[in-house]
Design a protein around this nucleic acid. Structure first.
Lengths: 178, 178
DNA sequence: GTGTTATGTCAGCTATGTTGACATATCTCA
DNA sequence: TGAGATATGTCAACATAGCTGACATAACAC
């Protein structure tokens, strides 16, 4: 870390201690995330939806044809939690189901035109915030933010997330290993 | 944005449209935040606490002598929500109250030794994740992450957050206004 | 001494997660 | 072809953490 090597509390004298707590990053990430979800929250509330609906719609929009099992794996919630929210999205024509082609037990999820519109509006709100955050920074700011956020994810999850985000991994992005 | 100026859907022909959705940043922030709070969640669960307890303890630990009103303002929750969680922290000796000195209606909140220990353990978990994320990146990665996250916060809130995080604002950090 | 403020508390509601148990349709494979 | 595994649905009950509204108390301010 930068400076601050001296401290007067009970630790940090010598030996393998924890590094200085990064209170700034901890708190900034807390507030940044709150505002990041705040924009969508307001729009969703106006149509009687919540964050849970947002997550489901987002991933269905991004991965049309997603199965229930895949969605549960991405969201890491139980099927009972998912079903309440998904039922509302289906009933109100934001999402539709079709039977799987090779396996007719599967329910493939697709956004309707109405669902794609809402998903796009929500993504636009969040994108606008990223644009406002990054535009006053250097040209590499976006790449740095992507690398930083990817590195914040559990290493065991990164490949799965990268596949979900970019399809089939863009180019192995570790400045690390060497 | 990098490339991708052509698109085939119904928009983006000309005129002041929204920019391309930044799905990568949207999803990476979602997963990064989930893992960021996942470490504390597991520790908290082992002692019967939840995220709400974490937030309260964190800010009491960081701002000893915080009043109820100030805490409500930081967390943006109602006093009824706060009171349930705070009561448990008080009952179990993680936090203690003292009457305000100049205004005895106020309840000043302080962490106990036990509370400081827990707050530190939680902060250490989150700090370790930041260290793992930043160490394979360049020496300026931390400063970039701080600037990025601060810029993600609502402009109207930034000064308040900066004061909370650094005390009295370090040095005006806008590469933006030129 | 009256009105405002800081806080506490009771009661009930909502959103979103959980577990456990069981039902149904479909697939797979011996 | 039939038995077992799999994908999904559903019922019921519960937990956490937010909310609103109403009312109480103590201490401050003028």
């Amino acid at each position: 870390m930068g400076s601050a090597a001296q401290k007067a509390d009970g630790r940090g004298v010598a030996g393998g201690d924890a590094p200085e707590p990064m209170f700034d990053l901890i708190e900034l990430l807390f507030f940044a995330y709150r505002d990041f979800v705040g924009d969508p929250d307001r729009l969703l509330e106006s149509i009687g939806f919540g964050r849970a609906h947002h997550r489901v719609l987002h991933f269905v929009d991004r991965q049309p044809g997603l199965t229930i099992a895949e969605l549960l794996d991405i969201l890491r919630i139980t099927k009972q939690s998912l079903s309440r929210v998904l039922k509302e999205l289906l009933d109100q024509d934001y999402v539709e189901q079709r039977a799987g082609v090779s396996d007719r037990r599967q329910r493939l999820l697709f956004p309707t035109a109405k669902g794609r519109k809402l998903a796009q509006d929500l993504a636009d709100l969040q994108t606008a915030r990223f644009v406002r955050a990054l535009s006053p920074m250097g040209p590499e700011a976006r790449a740095h933010a992507i690398e930083f956020l990817l590195n914040m994810i559990d290493p065991a999850e990164r490949e799965k997330v990268a596949k979900l985000v970019w399809g089939e991994i863009p180019q192995l992005r570790h400045r690390s290993a060497t």
